[in-house]
Design a protein around this nucleic acid. Structure first.
Length: 477
RNA sequence: GGCCUCGUAGUUCAAUGGAUAGAAUAGGAGUUUCCUAAACUCUAGAUGCAGGUUCGAUUCCUGCCGAGGCUACCA
């Protein structure tokens, strides 16, 4: 099981989510290719104080606006109100502190925050009006997300929602207390002491009896294992949660869950901007939809400039621009080791030349032209009698046979970057071969056959390798 | 403060203890009567600092310097 994406429903997806989604999707594909039966799931964070913040801001300032009336994708509309909340909140804190309230107190007492907390209580109490608004707003967000997922080319077998799972895990608390793994404080709160494992004490149940994030994740893990009795379960979640997952897995082991051995946190680094970290509340994010559209446009202008797609109708051309723009973006985010933090410079990051998605796609297109020509001229594919191979041919064969072990390596390490590096090396080597040796030119027919067969094999592996990254390989570009 | 990551050409990335530390990009010089020049060739350029382990260290260990993260009865 691979869990990835798992967004909050209070703002649109951004560059960080793109990295998450691409890593998750690709890892799932790589595991499939290495023989696993894979389920892709996500757990949507659709409840909590942050959601209530958007709801409050919408009620106060929304004037009944809808995605249609605002001509905005639903997720962007909600994101607007989330930002608005933060602006108002800051204003209130300022005026409170100006009137002599201490900053700490002001942060707690700002009326708009209090209102959000009340909204959360109403939601938890099942207040029909609050729940109705929540459903309506989340529905808009899901519509927006679905559009983005489709654009990104990712999919899921099952969606989990925190509004369904946030009460889970309490049974596990009882179980843990009974077996002595957890203990209860005088105030009624429940803790686990992991100090003997080099970690801290961790709260699992508040003194008022309500669950926390960890409790919920414990319960969700059990539930998912019942839904799909997995051998391995991969959580694709950012590295700021390293500690959380360390604790989660350890607790599950202590509770004697056998499946805990197969749990893995695929921890990936943040995507930084030259200006530093992205902060959605402050609006300093690279929006996923905008970025994809920008890349598409860039692919369009580049393609038109080169003028190589004569005969394409409008639909084919549009599909190609999307394939190329998205290919550039995916490859860019996947070629880096997932564990590492990476820098995204909007001005110059994503190119179509050099070690890029389009370079590999271009190589595939080049080979496709060769294959078309070979089919027309009826080149035999019998290559049994070749003996003296050129170094460029040997080098290609050497790379081709590595493909299976690269899949294995990528699967072992949950590292799509292994595949990305490999297809790049193969494409680069093929381009050398292509430039330095003639396929149809002044050569023996047997040699032509050999080189055509080699080309076909390279095209196959490039196409399959790119597919593992979620990147399409066009036949012309 | 404690814990966890990470420091490699100007820049963005490679390199599971092994040979001369690879690419791309930016810079310089070239390649198109010939299969797609989104390509190819040549050139110059890097392991934060100080120790240690080892026949051998970008990789393992220690210290320092620098960057980021975690350290909520938030999720």
């Amino acid at each position: 099981m691979v869990e990835y994406s798992s967004p909050n429903t209070n703002k649109p997806l951004h560059l960080g989510h793109l990295r998450n989604n691409f890593i998750g999707y690709s890892t799932a594909e790589i595991l499939k290719a290495s023989g696993y039966e894979v389920r892709k799931v996500q757990i949507i964070n659709d409840r909590g104080i942050h959601i209530c913040k958007s709801m409050v801001a919408y009620e106060k300032y929304g004037n009944g606006e809808t995605p249609e009336s605002a001509n905005l994708k639903g997720d962007h509309l909600i994101g607007k109100y989330y930002v608005r909340f933060d602006q108002e909140y800051k204003k209130e804190i300022e005026s409170l502190t100006a009137n002599g309230t201490s900053p700490d107190q002001a942060k707690k007492e700002a009326p708009i925050l209090v209102e959000a907390q009340e909204t959360l209580k109403k939601w938890e109490g099942g207040d029909p009006e609050t729940v109705g608004l929540w459903k309506k707003m989340n529905g808009w967000v899901y519509d927006g997300f679905n559009t983005t997922y489709e654009k990104m080319g990712v999919d899921f077998d099952k969606f989990y929602y925190e509004s369904d799972t946030y009460l889970l895990g309490k049974d596990l608390i009882e179980e843990g207390i009974a077996s002595g793994v957890f203990y209860k404080n005088d105030d009624g709160s429940v803790w686990v002491d992991l100090e003997s494992d080099g970690l801290d004490k961790k709260l699992l149940l508040r003194s008022d009896g309500t669950a926390v994030y960890m409790t919920q994740d414990l319960g969700t893990a059990d539930m998912r294992h019942q839904d799909y009795p997995f051998e391995k379960s991969i959580y694709v979640v950012g590295n700021e949660q390293d500690y959380h997952f360390k604790v989660l897995f350890l607790i599950l082991k202590k509770l004697g869950r056998k499946y805990a051995e197969g749990l893995y946190h695929l921890s990936y680094g943040m995507v930084d901007l030259p200006s530093g970290k992205m902060k959605s509340r402050e609006g300093t994010v690279v929006d996923a939809d905008e970025l994809i559209d920008e890349m598409r446009d860039k692919a369009e202008s580049k393609t038109k400039e080169l003028g190589k797609i004569e005969g394409f109708d409008r639909e084919q051309a549009q599909a190609l621009y999307h394939t190329l723009g998205l290919g550039a973006l995916k490859y860019y985010l996947l070629k880096v080791d997932p564990k590492k933090r990476m820098l995204f410079n909007p001005e110059e990051s994503i190119e179509f030349q050099g070690n890029t998605g389009p370079f590999i796609q271009y190589t595939h297109s080049r080979i496709s032209a060769i294959i078309r020509r070979a089919n027309e001229s009826d080149i035999p594919t019998d290559i049994s009698n070749n003996s003296d191979l050129e170094t460029q041919e040997l080098e290609l064969i050497r790379l081709l046979v590595q493909y299976p072990e690269k899949i294995y390596e990528a699967a072992e390490n949950y590292a799509p970057s292994v595949i990305a590096q490999y297809v790049y090396d193969l494409a680069k080597e093929y381009n050398r071969f292509y430039t330095e040796l003639s396929i149809f030119g002044d050569v023996d027919r047997k040699i032509t056959s050999l080189r055509v067969v080699l080309s076909i094999q390279v095209a196959n592996v490039l196409k399959k390798g790119l597919a593992l990254l979620g990147v399409k390989a066009p036949e012309r570009m």
